[in-house]
Design a protein around this nucleic acid. Structure first.
Lengths: 194, 194
DNA sequence: TCCGATTGTGAACAGGCTGTGCGGGACGCG
DNA sequence: CGCGTCCCGCACAGCCTGTTCACAATCGGA
């Protein structure tokens, strides 16, 4: 009715539908876990027709990936400022802060009722960041660089999971400190080295 | 209910059925991935009646857990010889050897078409072992012991996944060496020794 | 502003999988 | 050898999936 002709290439109806589906997915995930969600639930929660859903996404996994794509776009937009630090692994603190705010979603995604796809997406996003920020200094490192990247990401996820699952009381800064210590020194007693 | 003659032995027919289902699951997992498997597939592959399946397990996840329980029992049986030796993380080499032999199953279980439940079971089994074998020496470790455990397990899984997924050509001993280096020293400037 | 073309939308449909119930038959145990 | 336990085939309702189709809302040009 009212002509609010604006916006970009996407039809307003389509935009509205996608937004409703993404928001509905988030609500449902925290309510019953990703695995248990059906397309049926999604279209009821978002109040859209069945064929409408399939016109936009091939299934719930596609919707999930789409959500992560949007999230990654946002992240890389707000990440440009984090420069000027000589300290290695500077990004980790921001990660723990961010994860702490979305703790319930994260738990629902990565818990036993979550999704391997979600975990994979998270791992991929983190890998991109780490690949960029990991100190490249190591000239004669004995291990392939990608191993260092995966190791760092793995440790980040380990700490993240342990934190949100077992010790939600800790503050991001505390977990971040543990993360740095582990990544930089391993379990070796850092006292005698260096 | 109890079809077992008190003493732990199971009726041969029941044992045969369960064996057929477990073997069928393994075949199917490597053929089409865990996620895509239906109960329908399982009973056809194992040539078992529908109601028979549900008489033994509540679903495919239950069957999977049961399989891991058996595996863990076997492992802890063949593990008794591990000396409380001098070298820390003595178990890791055996783990990489073992995983290398079941590479295809492992990939099918933990790949994107795998199962979070399987990953969780693997993590749990590894955690038990690491909890037992991790040097408790820590005098004034600033971190909770469980964090060291999870960190070690996480790194093990990271290396395992990277190895089987990206560099299947490497030998277990090589991957094990990387694992030890990372766990003991992290990415810290351990590069200076060489 | 109006109209045709485009595109999103909702209802309905066929097919597949699930989990359960039941009677009859086979096998193992004592 | 008899009894009890377990397996099997079949059937059923219920739910979810992925697609089809007619219709209505929106967009773009005149």
């Amino acid at each position: 009715m009212s002509g609010k002709s604006e916006g970009g290439t996407i039809d307003r109806r389509a935009a509205r539908t996608r937004k409703a589906l993404h928001e509905g997915l988030l609500r449902l995930v925290t309510r019953k876990g990703y695995e248990a969600i059906t397309v049926q639930d999604l279209i009821e929660e978002a109040d859209v027709g069945r064929s409408t859903f399939y016109a936009h996404y091939t299934g719930k996994e596609d919707l999930l990936r789409s959500g992560f794509a949007m999230l990654r776009a946002e992240l890389s937009a707000t990440e440009a400022d984090g420069q000027a630090g000589d300290e290695p692994l500077r990004f980790s603190r921001a990660m723990f802060d961010h994860a702490g705010r979305y703790a319930d979603v994260f738990r629902a995604m990565t818990g036993s009722r979550g999704s391997l796809v979600a975990l994979e997406e998270i791992r991929r996003a983190l890998s991109e960041i780490v690949r960029r920020e990991l100190p490249k200094g190591g000239k004669d490192e004995g291990l392939p660089r990608e191993v260092y990247v995966q190791f760092t990401v793995g440790t980040l996820l380990t700490l993240l999971t342990w934190w949100l699952e077992k010790k939600p009381g800790l503050k991001p800064a505390q977990v971040d400190a543990m993360f740095r210590r582990l990544v930089l020194q391993g379990i070796g007693d850092g006292a005698e080295r260096r």
